[in-house]
């Protein structure tokens, strides 16, 4: 039997009176690529923030890699092997590529506490390797991130996650701001993750991309999971019907 990497039960998040996420039961198997789709405001990013520990959930339980977890922050999640490419990228624009890749987990040459000497050469080398492994092409590693195109920046953010993720990566709309060519690049990077057996949760509005890349599609609508479908048992029209609320699998949501 294939092991489960991530599982949530009854995951719920309220922002004051807003029920952004309600009773989400969700599961990802080892090496499985799952898409989350849904309209703007459906609660997709909220879901990501709860499982990565960026925010603390209102209710529900989370298991990761066999253990029940309560991540105090994204650092905990990272240490457990779960990486996330957030919607707002979270890059330091004035730093170069290796500095961003290793931000917060710098390689150290000599440990002097906060004044530890950086292993700049080691980080550069590891960055080159990491970019190669993920198929991210960046012409100049020593340029500040600010000087790069949207695709290159996204490449750096993804390479950062891919370099350190051992179990699972979450990407929140990684191609939303990209052009056709850059989108294709990011999709290729995602394929290398599949080949490396790393599980993926991909949030995307691009149904063509979703059907190209993932094994399973989960539909969010108004904070509820309304459908959970294998790729081969559905199609684009079907998914759109779930997204817009024409169709629903979820009885609780249907009664709303």
């Amino acid at each position: 039997m294939v092991k489960t990497v991530l599982k949530t039960e009854g995951l719920t998040k309220h922002y004051g009176g807003i029920q952004a996420l309600v009773d989400a039961d969700f599961e990802v198997k080892e090496g499985e690529h799952v898409a989350i789709v849904g309209d703007n405001g459906a609660g997709k990013s909220t879901f990501v923030r709860q499982i990565t520990g960026v925010e603390q959930r209102t209710a529900g339980r989370i298991w990761f890699d066999g253990n029940e977890v309560t991540f105090a922050g994204p650092l905990d999640a990272r240490e457990a092997g779960m990486e996330c490419v957030f919607q707002n990228l979270a890059l330091a624009d004035d730093l170069d590529v290796p500095a961003n890749l290793f931000l917060g987990r710098e390689k150290i040459l000599l440990n002097l506490g906060p004044f530890s000497i950086l292993d700049r050469r080691g980080m550069r080398k590891a960055t080159e390797d990491g970019l190669k492994a993920t198929g991210v092409r960046i012409p100049r590693l020593d340029y500040a991130i600010r000087r790069m195109s949207g695709g290159q920046r996204q490449g750096v953010a993804i390479a950062r996650s891919a370099t350190f993720a051992s179990k699972m990566i979450i990407m929140d709309e990684p191609t939303a701001a990209l052009g056709v060519q850059e989108t294709a690049q990011v999709e290729n990077i995602i394929r290398t993750l599949k080949a490396r057996g790393i599980a993926l949760v991909l949030i995307s509005h691009n149904l063509r991309q979703v059907f190209d890349l993932v094994d399973r599609i989960v539909v969010f609508r108004r904070g509820h999971i309304v459908a959970n479908l294998r790729k081969d048992e559905t199609d684009g029209n079907d998914i759109v019907a779930y997204i817009t609320g024409v169709k629903t699998q979820n009885v609780a949501a249907a009664l709303m």
Binding site: A90, L103, G104, E106, P114, S116, L118
Partner: peptide, 19 residues
């Protein structure tokens, strides 16, 4: 040093540094 790297990172994007 780490101190220097983090000084620039915070000025560049404090939210990213925290993340």
């Amino acid at each position: 040093t780490l101190y220097g790297r983090h000084t620039y990172a915070i000025g560049s994007n404090a939210a990213a540094a925290r993340m």
